[in-house]
């Protein structure tokens, strides 16, 4: 049974304008996404900036109120649950953010930051919490002596370790990792990725791993979903996706990766244009529309629900891109 099941999730934001500040349009950041995630599994999520991957992550941990659709987590429907009713569930549903400098309170010491989850959930005595904090620091590779320091005293990689320690404090089942290494130096990125892999093995965590670096996503994931303009266009086992991409957008993304090997230089099929705005997105296949594909018109009247083309390999069935 899967731990997380998201069905046809939509997350719209009103665009306000005019003198009365009324909603004049809506920004369709996430527009009908269905995914599922099993225990100890990592689902990678890639796409260009503005495609809605962060919004999807935030909606899943319910930092947002979804517009429609459903999110089922660990057997409970959490789509419309109130904040109070959600609190016991939050233990199992955590998030790691891109910029550790901005997601740690600068006026709190490491101890305050790591004790807070326990205090919010009303778990343990003062002494117990202290011991747990020491254990957490050890788990993420920091010494207990840093407990009374403030976030600014750490390097980026160490700060991200603190962010990870906070996320695993309550032994969650699912962690949404939103670009966890893109703000870090290259030599430190692999340390943090290794830590995430170790913790997953040790604690049986599931990850929704969001990133724009495709080589990183491939390395971390069991399955990968490719998102374009609020929709998933392809979803497949990691190796399969990279070896046999079916959708034109996935192919274009893969083609654009600069490979760190000068003997593998190649002529690229460059993508034209930019990601269109999610306010009033084009009908049908948005990528076919961007590429001005002659068959794009056919996709407008079609049902673009993902179809399974090989075991576990799902792709949007538009005539222009597949």
């Amino acid at each position: 049974m899967s731990l997380l099941t998201v069905k046809n999730l939509q997350q719209y934001f009103p665009v306000r304008g005019g003198v009365l500040h009324r909603a004049v349009a809506s920004c369709k950041a996430v527009d009908g996404v269905s995914i599922s995630l099993g225990e100890s599994e990592t689902l990678g999520l890639v796409g260009e900036s503005g495609c809605g991957k962060t919004t999807l992550g935030k909606a899943i941990v319910r930092l947002l109120k979804p517009t429609s659709g459903s999110i089922e987590f660990d057997g409970h429907d959490i789509t419309r649950v109130s904040t109070g009713a959600l609190r016991p569930m939050r233990r199992h549903l955590q998030m790691i953010f891109q910029d550790p400098a901005e997601s740690l309170n600068p006026r709190h010491t490491v101890r305050d930051i790591l004790e807070e989850p326990f205090i919010v959930q009303k778990i343990g005595t003062k002494d117990e919490r202290r011991q747990w904090v020491v254990k957490l620091l050890d788990k993420v590779g920091l010494s207990a002596s840093v407990m009374d320091r403030f976030p600014f005293e750490f390097s980026g990689g160490q700060r991200q370790r603190i962010g990870i320690a906070r996320a695993i404090a309550l032994k969650p089942k699912l962690i949404v990792c939103d670009e966890p290494v893109s703000a870090l130096d290259v030599s430190v990125q692999s340390q943090v990725l290794n830590l995430l892999l170790d913790l997953q093995r040790e604690m049986g965590l599931s990850y929704l791993f969001i990133a724009h670096g495709l080589n990183v996503v491939k390395h971390m994931s069991d399955r990968v979903a490719v998102m374009y303009l609020g929709k998933i266009v392809e979803l497949a086992p990691a190796v399969d996706l990279y070896q046999n991409p079916r959708h034109a957008y996935t192919k274009a993304l893969l083609d654009a990766i600069p490979i760190a090997d000068p003997t593998q230089r190649r002529e690229r099929q460059l993508l034209r244009g930019d990601v269109p705005s999610p306010i009033n997105p084009p009908a049908g296949c948005a990528f076919g529309h961007r590429m001005k594909h002659p068959k794009w018109k056919e996709s407008v009247s079609m049902d673009l629900t993902l179809q399974e083309v090989a075991p576990g390999h799902w792709v949007q069935p538009c005539p222009c891109c597949t």
Partner: peptide, 25 residues
């Protein structure tokens, strides 16, 4: 050498340990 080894490559096996440079810049 450390920098080149620490990049996740497209032909590497997913979810295996990466070589890492210890410490911080």
């Amino acid at each position: 050498q450390g920098l080149l080894e620490s990049i996740p490559r497209l032909d590497s096996t997913p979810k295996t340990k990466l070589k890492a440079i210890q410490g911080n810049v």
